[in-house]
Amino acid sequence: MWAYEKKLQYPVNIKNKNLKLAKLMMAQYGGGNSELAAALRYLNQRYTMPDEKGKNLLTDIATEEIGHVEIMDSIIYQLMEGASIEEIKKEGMADFYAEHGNDLYPVNPSGVPFTVTYFSSVGDPLANLSEDMAAEEKARAVYENLIDLTDDPDVLAPLNFLRQREIVHFTRFKELYDYYKNKGIK
């Protein structure tokens, strides 16, 4: 079961509003390679991991990913905090405001809502781990795209942190994949 620690895994301290940037950040909040997709993916695949190693790794990474969902929503929240209705209209966020007011909602930058079809669970540990490795690489690439799209050091700091995490997660999934392959687990 999940317990909550009232802190962010990594701090988010954004001084300057930027609604256009907030919309782009939704890519990693509700998009196809988002932290939310990652968390749900690993939570659904952990059941067919053949031993405690795999069950633990998927559960522990999923737990971290939920913390990353929180970092992304903090980034989006702070980028939009205090925006007036005029600013919301001018910066192209009126569509979002109409449906959600000042709440968040998992959509991608084009407004496409999050769907569980962004991830799979196929009941096979090697296939699942292959997807997990690809997912981490894709998330890393998307973070690089987002990093390319801003100069704000307050936003770059958590984005680079989150990007680095994808690299570590990829490595652990690869290590587990190789371990199972060598053991002859199919």
Partner: peptide, 12 residues
């Protein structure tokens, strides 16, 4: 750095 492991660290 977001990474405790020097052999894995790779900045953008």
């Amino acid at each position: 750095k977001g990474n405790m492991f020097p052999e894995l660290y790779s900045p953008y």
